[in-house]
């Protein structure tokens, strides 16, 4: 007993008090800011460098749904592209993930497009079933971390369930491998209506590095309405948590 108390004292208080404003290290790769005076030549240079084609050849905007946050564009063009440590980058519409040059404003959820029943039914309790479909296990580990002693997402009534029958929606990670496509559909069908779909990580949103692979089957994603996009490689627990809190309209 005495030893346990000693361990607890060493442990101290670990939980993040303010999930909305928890500082993260300066180097964390979050929302990028692209200088408004980026030239066509510079755009050409970085867009041909980008391994996933996340930088638009014409406008120079960066699509966070494609971006794998490798930061190579910034290393190539330090004076024009800068990844800030702003981790609040989730969106309710796919097109909102596109960051245009000159835009420094934070990314906030477009409330208009959120289905009305989501906030009405799930505001105080949202149970989710996770489906890993070709993920590299980093997003899965970050989702687990969301519920750990530090981030404790459970304090808001948001938790992962063991069965889709007990869930209000699914959280998909990974580019959706063809070998997992059928199991993903079955899991989704097993969730009672109404249900939400959340995509976590760049792989899930666009296929990421695997977008062009013949071993990937994106048809489920293309056929369904997505309620929340949580970019990142992997998505940081704070990105996921803030995205869900915004989706549910929590403070």
């Amino acid at each position: 007993m005495y030893r346990e108390i000693k361990i607890l004292r060493q442990h101290g208080i670990q939980y993040v008090r303010d999930l909305r404003n928890q500082p993260v290290s300066d180097l964390f790769r979050g929302r990028p800011v692209i200088s408004g005076d980026i030239t066509a030549a510079e755009i050409e240079k970085v867009s041909s460098l980008c391994p996933v084609g996340a930088i638009d050849k014409d406008s120079g905007s960066i699509d966070l749904g494609l971006c794998v946050f490798c930061r190579e564009c910034e290393f190539c063009l330090k004076e024009k592209i800068r990844f800030t440590n702003d981790y609040r980058i989730a969106a309710s519409r796919r097109e909102d993930l596109v960051i245009r040059p000159g835009i420094e404003a934070p990314l906030r959820l477009n409330v208009e497009v959120i289905r009305k029943e989501i906030r009405r039914i799930y505001r105080h309790s949202l149970k989710l079933r996770q489906v890993s479909a070709g993920g590299d296990n980093s997003c899965e580990m970050e989702l687990n971390a969301s519920g750990n002693v530090n981030f404790d997402l459970g304090r808001h009534g948001i938790e992962f369930t063991a069965s889709p029958r007990h869930a209000d929606g699914i959280v998909i990670t990974g580019p959706v491998s063809a070998n997992m496509a059928a199991a993903l559909r079955l899991t989704y069908e097993a969730v009672p209506d109404p249900k939400v779909i959340i995509l976590v990580g760049t792989d899930a949103i666009s296929g990421g590095m695997y977008a062009g692979s013949p071993a990937v089957d994106r048809s489920f994603i293309e056929e369904h309405h997505i309620d929340l996009y949580v970019p990142g490689n992997p998505a940081h627990p704070l990105t996921f948590i803030n995205g869900i809190l915004d989706l549910l309209g929590k403070k």
Binding site: G134, G135, M180, S213, A215
Partner: peptide, 11 residues
């Protein structure tokens, strides 16, 4: 196993 296959080696 095989559910996670994404074609890494070929890519």
């Amino acid at each position: 196993l095989g559910y996670q296959h994404r074609g890494v080696e070929r890519l």
